[in-house]
């Protein structure tokens, strides 16, 4: 089983769709449960995220690995449902760069990483109105990720948290904040649940907090 786990992990890092499919087939033939296969691939995706941030892999590689995972999920998803093991299903996350801010790339990469990690990502793009975040949360998102790249716009992250409090929804949603000027101290100050220095750190923390 350990060999299969390693093979799955390595196949994801090698980011070839066919290679990932083959590793999944082999693991299934060896009797590995769907949940464990998904976890092993998820660990590989975390590594892919780190390699991306360290300039060793690039976005098309990340997406190719994600595409391989997606193909595998088409087979593994029904098996998971049949077995009644839904533990690997992750939360719905609304993501966006806050209003007044058009910086998109970091947030988009973070959305991609979260998507690869199995989250149901609703990426609203950039310059997103506060009400749009709130509406998605009302619509069922249990996590909210807000990016801000300017000291003038990072205050909107606090505004959204205050709206959530005022509407009695704060306890129903995990709020994540990030972006160049945002720090752990600022996240603590405004009452966010999670701060990520990088996309992969955000994804790791999101996985941990949503378990």
């Amino acid at each position: 089983m350990a060999d299969n786990k390693k093979a799955l992990h390595d196949a994801v890092i090698a980011y070839k769709v066919d290679g990932i499919k083959e590793a999944v087939d082999n693991a299934r033939k060896a009797g590995m449960p769907a949940g464990e296969i998904i976890d092993a691939m998820g660990d590989g995706m975390t590594e892919v995220g780190i390699l991306f941030e360290r300039g060793k892999l690039f976005l098309p590689h990340v997406l190719s690995a994600a595409q391989g995972m997606k193909s595998a999920m088409e087979v593994l998803g029904p098996e998971l449902k049949d077995s009644g093991d839904a533990s690997t299903k992750r939360a719905s996350v609304v993501m966006g760069t806050v209003e007044g801010d058009v910086h998109d790339i970091g947030k988009s990469i973070c959305s991609t990483m979260l998507q690869c990690a199995g989250f149901d990502v609703h990426d609203l793009g950039r310059d997103v109105a506060k009400s749009a975040f709130i509406n998605e949360i009302k619509g069922g998102c249990t996590m909210c990720g807000m990016s801000a790249l300017m000291t003038t716009t990072m205050t909107v992250q606090r505004d959204v948290i205050e709206i959530l409090k005022a509407e009695g929804m704060r306890d129903k949603v995990i709020v994540m904040v990030g972006g160049a000027p945002v720090t752990q101290a600022y996240a603590d100050k405004i009452g966010a649940d999670l701060y990520g220095e990088t996309a992969s750190e955000t994804t790791s923390k999101a996985k941990a907090i949503s378990k």
Binding site: P60, L63, S108, T112, D123
Partner: peptide, 16 residues
């Protein structure tokens, strides 16, 4: 097209 958006939809060639 915005490469980050296109890639999330696995339209990798188009993004490139």
């Amino acid at each position: 097209g915005n490469p980050a958006d296109l890639m999330r939809e696995f339209r990798i060639e188009e993004a490139m």
